[in-house]
Design a protein around this nucleic acid. Structure first.
Lengths: 343, 343
DNA sequence: AATCGATCTCAAAGCGCTTTGGACGCCAAT
DNA sequence: ATTGGCGTCCAAAGCGCTTTGAGATCGATT
């Protein structure tokens, strides 16, 4: 059943039916009622392509999720981000067109999405340091917002980012305040811009106090539990082992904890852990009021909300200036961090 | 730049240009070359809506991801499933249209997706026991495949499922063979059909040997690490504690392990753990050759591949009979399971 | 010289919707 | 009696593509 048939069956023109259904005022309430009832009766649903072709709006946004080419791994953060963005978008009647891409074919995918009409805008994830995708997206002329930032790039694009550098600065300060001198950093892959910034924050906090960082205590890998476990074991076997660990994800922190406990050490007493917590729904940091880890917390789901909101704004007001949003992480204290031993 | 302009700039008709670009034989190689070159030069990309409207194919499939209404939680399995499906689909030029839905509005979303033209077919996830979405989808007349099955429903729909009951039957057998008499089951939410089947397998394995199961050792919750930790602590404090745990997810198993170790018990010796492992990319069960947990393993990413493949088949041959695929989980032995103590 | 077949190209008809620019009554105001 | 305005409705022109059914062109065959 299409518009034409529906109109015919009602003895009305397509125009009137279309207007009745879309709430235009030029149609009497009596006919509107007649039309809507018939539409329900026949199960009429407008063809989205036709409508989109006529209106010029796709009512969809593109979401490109990168997979780290090395491990074909999907960042677990992504599910919650999408959930957040999805809530906002579906509330506005927008669909999400998803592309999962290994880094190699990124550009092709963006171009394909830009294929006129597929989407009205897009959200880019996980920018790398010096990412050239941004320049490319600008040329495409489609509204877009970046979840994250690119350090070496100018600011003439819309982004939403957590202040990674500041968060890790504070986390490091916290550990330094507790007297820790040898702090290990278990970072994510530092080609990712956010990991790069976290490293900067970590280093800055040290140098502000004139303290050294130790390259052998700094690791950078895909953030898994096993990575945390193995790296911790390796570092704790060093002649001068760290007394505290700063990790980039709860999963890694869990690995660190396991390594600590498997050696009969006590977390928060013998060894401290501070982690970043993206507040993933299926990986809560303990319960609401009793956290397991001291953590810099920034819910990625909320980030999804905000990115979507920003994109909506960009789409609604074409030609508007770039929007930039910076979020601060909260530092929640948990039992995983305590004073450095023998100090 | 649209087709009309491109044709004009070449002094050709739209027909010829369209045919040249789409590889039809009715056009000479010389013109085809001229056309493709011009298309690249002007950056011409056909409007997907217009094309879709003309061809009748949307070149997209819908993916509906449910969020458990209770915790607004996104199942972590989903990211890898999407990655798998995405690989297959993008290889075929299909897009993914994603909807994240809390259980309440499921039906509305499916209907909206069915809105003629949005997608050519869809994949449904996480069916509940007695789910009525299947009957609804059948009525919609859109090809669809279900990731999972619905116990109480007839078999006249396409599904792809892991043999959950069998997997948990085998896992239970393994523990019973090792002499365990009191085995705890830390299941997912049993409204989910797969969790229901797992429970069945667990119980059947016991009753086949004339052994009892203990209701107080059976839990059913959203699968988080904290759930594993708390439940294990609770159960190990019972007068007659379990000697083994069978869990539904690696995350839960990690919680169990933590509880065990925090009590100074040794996993695989004092207490055994067997878990199901969805082989999530960011949550590997140890390394390839050295697993941490004894586990029934069934990569959910592969499931995504297969579902997508099946859907493609369904879309390509309209009116075909339902396809059903059943996967077996492999049982990998790891150091987390061993003989029951004092037996 | 007329016909045929092969090859290349085109005009135009959709696909199903929105939206512009009226048309048609009908009533109050001139 | 004319005008103007208002409330309802409509015909038709797109949106940008694919595809049908034919029309050229040209060398080869009768």
């Amino acid at each position: 059943m299409n518009l034409k048939d529906l109109a015919a069956s009602l003895g009305l023109s397509q125009t009137t039916v279309s207007r009745a259904l879309n709430g235009y005022p030029e149609v009497s309430e009596a006919t509107r009622k007649r039309v809507t009832e018939a539409a329900i009766k026949y199960g009429y649903r407008p063809d989205s392509r036709a409508r989109s072709l006529a209106t010029g709006k796709a009512m969809a946004v593109g979401l490109v999720i990168p997979m780290t080419s090395s491990h074909e791994m999907v960042n677990p953060v992504f599910a919650d981000f999408v959930a957040g963005a999805g809530e906002t978008l579906s509330g506005r009647g927008y669909d999400i067109v998803l592309s999962l891409v290994s880094e190699a074919d990124q550009t092709a995918v963006y171009r394909a999405l830009a294929t006129k009409g597929r989407v009205d805008g897009l959200i880019m994830q996980a920018p790398l340091t010096g990412d050239e995708r941004i320049s490319m997206l600008k040329k495409l002329g489609l509204p877009f917002v970046v979840h994250g930032r690119v350090s070496d790039h100018d600011d003439q694009y819309s982004w939403m980012d957590m202040d990674n550098s500041h968060a890790f600065h504070r986390a490091t300060d916290h550990l330094l305040d507790l007297g820790h001198k040898r702090i290990a950093l278990l970072n994510g892959i530092e080609a990712m811009d956010f990991a790069h910034r976290r490293r900067d924050g970590f280093i800055d906090a040290h140098s502000e106090r004139g303290l050294p960082v130790f390259p052998e205590l700094m690791a950078s890998e895909a953030m898994t539990e096993v990575y945390g476990f193995n790296t911790t074991n390796r570092m704790l076997s060093m002649p001068a082992p760290p007394t505290a660990f700063l990790t980039s994800s709860l999963l890694v922190a869990m690995g660190v904890r396991r390594a600590i406990e498997s050696r009969g050490l006590r977390m928060g007493q013998d060894i401290s852990i501070v982690t970043h917590d993206d507040a993933l729904s299926y990986l809560p940091n303990g319960t609401e009021d009793v956290p397991i880890f001291t953590a810099t917390r920034s819910p990625v789901r909320k980030a999804g909300h905000i990115c979507a909101e920003m994109l909506m704004k960009l789409i609604d007001t074409p030609g508007s200036d770039p929007i930039r949003t910076k979020l601060e992480a909260t530092l929640t204290l948990g039992p995983s961090s305590g004073p450095a031993p023998n100090s």
